[in-house]
């Protein structure tokens, strides 16, 4: 009797443990499925075009010629614009939250940053179309033209829709993740480092600039890279404001198209064959790049990855 009971208990443990392990394996499987599905489905295009796929500039479903360079260009440029705008802002915000803000203000601002992270990208896009695009067209672009118009970056007619607007919108969207990851990075800086600096007669800014920020450079870089990963793959908001014209132009005022926005525009219309394969290869490209960015940063930078999921919460004040 007891023996039997023991056996059932053992069996129960085995079954439960097996079930949880199976569920855990599903995450492994998921990663494998991504890789396999994307590769097999884009194989035809990979074989057919080889490197021409990423260097070609013609994208023509009618004659089945696919070159992705304009989309890669659009993706990279819009993401870089986003980084240029978002990085200083996010690091400043994170430094403010971790080193300057009183507890109460810190909580409130963190709450708002979390809200910013919770807004769906289609809402960003909607706001982008009806608020940001007109604002950029009527204020930002004329201003840039008047002040920095000698740069090729800021030449051409102010459409509103285009690379610049997409970059601004992306910057707003990746600000929360860079901010919260930078916060984590600063959180890892020992209080003793700050006190050492202050005790030597440094001002608060000197302490932030020379003792706190440099202490965990790799953490901050990781935050930026993960922000970049987000920007590269962001779809809806960009699709709605970038203009969706596959151009390679030095001007940020011109419309463009990203890999993700092309997918959003064309994938539902695809019937199969080489076209589908080429589109999937674009997805594979996006997958590969973001996968590598994530793997590399997480492998080399010990991150408190909790915040990546957006489940941020209040933490100890450091200053």
């Amino acid at each position: 009797m007891t023996h039997e009971k023991l056996e059932t208990a053992k069996l129960g443990e085995l079954a439960f443990r097996g079930a949880t392990a199976a569920a855990a394996s599903s995450i492994l499987a998921l990663a494998a499925v991504y890789a396999v599905q994307m590769t097999t489905n884009s194989w035809e295009s990979i074989v057919r075009f080889g490197w021409d796929f990423v260097t070609g500039t013609a994208w023509d479903p009618v004659s089945d010629v696919y070159g992705a360079l304009p989309f890669i260009w659009g993706t990279v440029v819009s993401s870089l614009v986003a980084l240029v705008l978002a990085v200083p802002l996010s690091i400043g915000l994170a430094a403010y939250l971790s080193e300057v803000a009183p507890v109460r203000i810190r909580r409130i601002v963190e709450f708002f940053v979390e809200l910013l992270a919770a807004i769906p990208s289609v809402v960003y896009g909607l706001w982008g179309i009806f608020v940001l695009v007109p604002f950029v067209r009527e204020h930002v672009q004329p201003f840039l033209q008047n002040t920095l118009g000698f740069l090729p970056l800021f030449q051409g007619p102010p459409f509103g829709y285009g690379m610049l607007t997409a970059g601004i919108l992306l910057a707003i969207m990746i600000l929360p993740i860079i901010t919260s990851l930078t916060r984590e990075a600063l959180h890892a800086v020992p209080i003793a480092q700050r006190e050492a600096s202050l005790a030597l007669g440094s001002t608060r800014w000197e302490t932030i600039r020379h003792a706190v920020l440099p202490y965990n450079k790799s953490g901050i870089i990781a935050a930026i890279v993960l922000g970049l990963g987000r920007a590269l793959g962001e779809t809806m908001a960009v699709t709605m404001v970038i203009g969706n014209v596959p151009l390679i132009s030095p001007s940020l005022f011109m419309p463009g198209q990203t890999v993700a926005s092309l997918l959003a525009n064309e994938f539902a219309e695809v019937s199969g064959g080489l076209y589908l394969s080429a589109l999937t290869e674009l997805g594979l490209l996006l997958f590969g790049v973001t996968f590598i960015l994530n793997v590399v940063t997480r492998l080399f930078v010990p991150l408190v990855s909790r915040k990546v999921g957006g489940a941020a919460e209040g933490r100890r004040q450091l200053t």
Partner: peptide, 8 residues
């Protein structure tokens, strides 16, 4: 301080 805290 109690614990040595040199900068890295």
């Amino acid at each position: 301080f109690q614990r040595p805290n040199p900068f890295p």
